[in-house]
């Protein structure tokens, strides 16, 4: 029962492990290049477990900023999780509070996307399934971080082997996957323009929160489409 669901979750996350692995390696390599110890890098992957914010964290630590500024920046990059956990609340009702607490610890972009896909396909979202999904990505993430730390010493310039391009293209693929949703095009245009303006005039990492808020506001202000009403509803 649990084990079958767990295996089904693992199968679902397997292709994502392959595409996330380079980013674990990238993080480990960048961390070591920024003077982090292997222990610190693996611990960071294990307790924060959110790649983009981990990279922002080590970049800012390098600039000798106060700890609270770095922590606030990590919060800003991860702010999107607030909206993910709100959006999946309707899908995880059968889970106990502790199971939900564990599931939220493992909540990432692909984890969220797969839960939405499972729920929209009418398939059950069980504890075993989300654990297969979550643990299936969590353990490789730490292993790849360690591998990246070891490899980091050998990678002279990450740009020469194109490591820097993988991240935005990966996220672009996720964005394209949502293109059937209502308001997708106006949201993507608004978030693109706002985040590009923010990175020019406000600076990183605020472009993430600013761009996201503008896109979400555009969606909220668009004419309401009757067929999508009250899809999120507590029972």
């Amino acid at each position: 029962m649990f084990i079958d669901d767990f295996k089904a979750g693992l199968r679902r996350i397997a292709p994502i492990i392959v595409s996330a692995a380079p980013f674990g390696v990238l993080f480990g390599a960048v961390a070591v290049q920024h003077g982090m110890s292997v222990g610190e890098a693996v611990l960071m992957s294990g307790v924060i477990y959110a790649g983009a914010s981990q990279l922002v964290g080590i970049n800012l630590f390098d600039q000798h900023l106060p700890a609270w500024v770095v922590i606030l920046s990590i919060l800003a990059v991860n702010f999107r999780h607030i909206l993910y956990s709100a959006a999946i609340a309707r899908h995880i009702d059968p889970l106990t509070p502790w199971q939900k607490a564990v599931n939220f610890f493992l909540l990432t972009d692909p984890h969220y996307a797969e839960i939405e896909r499972q729920a929209h396909a009418g398939e059950p979202v069980t504890f075993g399934w989300v654990m297969g999904l979550g643990i299936g990505l969590y353990i490789p993430w730490m292993a790849m971080t360690y591998a990246g730390c070891v490899l980091g010493a050998f990678i002279g310039d990450p740009k020469s082997i194109g490591l820097d391009v993988l991240l935005p293209v990966y996220f672009l693929g996720l964005v394209m996957g949502f293109r059937k949703r209502p308001n997708w095009l106006p949201v993507v245009i608004a978030s693109s323009l706002a985040s590009m303006a923010a990175i020019k005039f406000v600076g990183s990492p605020w472009h993430v929160s600013i761009g996201a808020v503008v896109g979400i506001l555009v969606a909220a202000l668009m004419p309401v489409q009757p067929d999508t009403r009250s899809e999120i509803e507590e029972r």
């Binding site: 983009a52 909206l83 972009d109 964005v175 308001n183 978030s191 600013i210 969606a219």
Partner: peptide
């Protein structure tokens, strides 16, 4: 509903 596209776009554009 716009959250994933909005946030992920800011990591791309």
């Amino acid at each position: 509903n716009a959250v994933p596209a909005a946030v992920l776009t800011t990591l791309v554009a």
